[in-house]
Design a protein around this nucleic acid. Structure first.
Lengths: 137, 137
DNA sequence: GCTTGACGTTCCAGTGGCGGGAGGGTCTAT
DNA sequence: ATAGACCCTCCCGCCACTGGAACGTCAAGC
């Protein structure tokens, strides 16, 4: 049972991919429980802490907010969870993503059309500026 | 020539769609020149200020950052501008948008696939949580 | 044993683009 | 005279960090 590897924040960071500053920040927010400490007051992390950090990192990579991640962690730790609750969080997040993607795409297309019509030479005429100075469409 | 309508920040806000707080904020940032003042120290805006505010608002709607807008305003005001410079800013912004859209879409698809595989019932098993606890892919 | 450098600690400030609210002054209508 | 709708400045909070200052701790090399 030498699996009980306990490490400082630097190793925990390297193992989880979460920067030390960010780990402390999550702890301060209450997203993580206050870490155990070595005798010298350095924070001490074990494998289960690393697991949690990786979970958070993956969830961040998928665009979940820290608030959503807090809920996800609660479900993750709860063996009697209903997958329904996880799925609901995921679907809500997907809906947000769809909304953002649609908005960005609309903007992108508008701008691409304006840019297409702009000669992009040494002359001052430019449909992009013309459009911007118009009253709100 | 009664076009020289001069108004307070509230009217300027209503005419431009930019909230009063935001107008003051832009002024503080230096994006707008300090407004003229009435005798009572209230800020005074005329039609050309409104035009600028509308320009900023439209540019924000198109997702430009305030820094980019600062450059756009410079070009907008410069009669000797080259449309090339405007187009370059626009194309750079489009590239950013494309990047964001691609990333969000990738995330969305990953999450949608995980959600599809999640039963979403009263049982705890859930591929979404399973995925999140895995080492970084 | 002493220094050096890489860690770790806390606390404070800044990012972007605002919004909320406190605590006041001003103006208009009743 | 007072109510209410404006306006003013100033500071705090949001989100998710990141950077830096000023300091403590530890292992390695001379």
């Amino acid at each position: 049972m030498r699996n009980k590897a306990v490490m400082t924040i630097g190793k925990a960071s390297a193992s989880s991919g979460v920067p030390p500053k960010t780990i402390r920040f999550y702890e301060e927010l209450g997203l993580l429980k206050p870490a155990e400490r070595f005798a010298n007051r350095y924070r001490a992390y074990d494998e289960s802490n690393i697991q949690t950090l990786r979970f958070i990192r993956r969830a961040r990579d998928l665009g979940f907010s820290l608030q959503e991640i807090d809920k996800l962690l609660g479900l993750y730790r709860n063996r009697r969870r209903a997958s329904e609750d996880v799925k609901r969080l995921a679907l809500a997040h997907i809906a947000e993503l769809d909304h953002k993607i649609a908005e960005l795409t609309r903007i992108r297309d508008t701008l691409a059309e304006l840019a297409r019509r702009c000669r992009g030479d040494q002359r001052p005429e430019c449909p992009i500026l013309d459009e911007l100075e118009l009253p709100p469409s």
